[in-house]
């Protein structure tokens, strides 16, 4: 019975994500895209949550892992000739690589995880604000290198003609898999130890917990999940540029997590879907929203202002997030 109650922490997020997936299939084509996009955003936010939620350390850098995952999945599914036309200096191994959809997602996860592990070895020694700023530095460096080193990608050009394979089924199954892994980690001994140590670092150190190693593990896992989510993203969009996976996305996903409540999986899911929902609604409103009493159109640009205002207000007046950082369980 207790096991069942514990498991219910996974049930609510999974049900909500599945619901979004199912409802989305019944909407019009353009709205369908919004639903799939929301599911992919949820995957990114859950990946971010795995690290931030359990370590209590803020990371601006996860979008780097989304970026390398996205480019890895994109570059391994685009024909060689196209790649070389974008970037003649591409390393031969990248230029010639061509794999299927599932393999490209696996590669995205692997690249994200390895990159996070490498970055984490020095960075996980830091905490608090210095960790936040160091991860921000990782984001800038990753973007700068991806944008200018044409041996590893298309540089500042758009990588297009990526197969658009992130269907509703893939998006939903993908995000649920990410949520399940996040849940399994959180229930594992490592996940619990890290969370306890972030609540009370002194006590954890006293109990002989190696916080550094625990953080590194969480960082690498969350980097792998972020890379995977980046793969889903590139296969949803069909194209990708370095600017799409930079500051705006980093800020947006972090804000989603904090708005939902960064201490729970439920918070991560709710935050991602809530903000995505508001965003889509505003996007539609900018194009003209039929409210039944006549069409309402708001000026272009209103979306970003409203989104920014909503996020700032929730952060200011509900700093633990809309879920209060709690899981939705039977208990």
């Amino acid at each position: 019975m207790r096991r069942l109650a514990e498991l219910s922490g996974l049930v609510a997020p999974v049900l909500l994500l599945a619901l979004v997936g199912v409802v989305g299939t019944f909407t019009s084509r353009s709205v369908q895209f919004q639903f799939r996009f929301a599911l992919v955003m949820a995957a990114i936010v859950i990946a971010l949550y795995v690290f931030v939620g359990s370590s209590g350390v803020v990371s601006f850098g996860h979008v780097s892992f989304v970026a390398v995952g996205g480019f890895a999945a994109g570059l391994t599914t685009v024909p060689e000739a196209l790649k070389l036309s974008l970037s003649p200096d591409l390393f031969p191994v990248i230029a010639s690589a061509e794999v299927g959809n599932a393999a490209s997602l696996a590669i995205a996860a692997a690249v994200g995880g390895v990159f996070a592990l490498i970055v984490g070895v020095p960075l996980m020694r830091l905490s608090g604000l210095s960790a936040g700023i160091a991860t921000f530095a990782v984001l800038v460096i990753t973007n700068n290198v991806l944008r200018n080193w044409e041996a590893i990608g298309p540089g500042a050009r758009t990588l297009s003609l990526v197969p658009e394979t992130t269907s509703f089924l893939q998006a939903t199954v993908g995000v649920i898999a990410v949520a399940a892994l996040a849940f399994l980690y959180q229930r594992s001994r490592w996940g619990r130890v890290l969370r306890a140590s972030s609540d009370d670092p002194a006590a954890a150190q006293g109990a002989g917990v190696d916080i550094y190693r625990q953080r590194l593990l969480a960082f690498a896992l969350s980097g792998a999940l972020a890379g995977f989510a980046g793969g889903l993203l590139v296969h949803l969009l069909g194209s990708i540029t370095t600017q799409q996976v930079y500051l705006d996305l980093a800020f947006l996903t972090l804000a989603m997590l904090v708005i939902g409540g960064f201490r729970s999986l439920w918070g991560a899911v709710v935050g991602a879907l809530l903000v995505s929902g508001i965003n889509s609604l505003l996007l539609t409103a900018e194009r003209g929203l039929d409210l039944g009493i006549g069409e309402v159109t708001v000026p272009t640009g209103t979306r970003l202002v409203t989104l920014g205002a909503v996020m700032a207000l929730i952060l200011l007046f509900r700093p633990t997030g809309v879920t209060g950082g709690r899981e939705l369980t039977l208990r």
């Binding site: 904090v258 640009g301 209103t302 205002a309 952060l315």
Partner: peptide, 30 residues
Amino acid sequence: VYRPLRTTTPTTMLVTTFAVSFLLQAVALL
């Protein structure tokens, strides 16, 4: 605007000032 932040965590502080920056840039864009 930042007054409520005085009692909150560094993470929330950082993300909130980022949100305010985002909001103001959006206002300028509009």
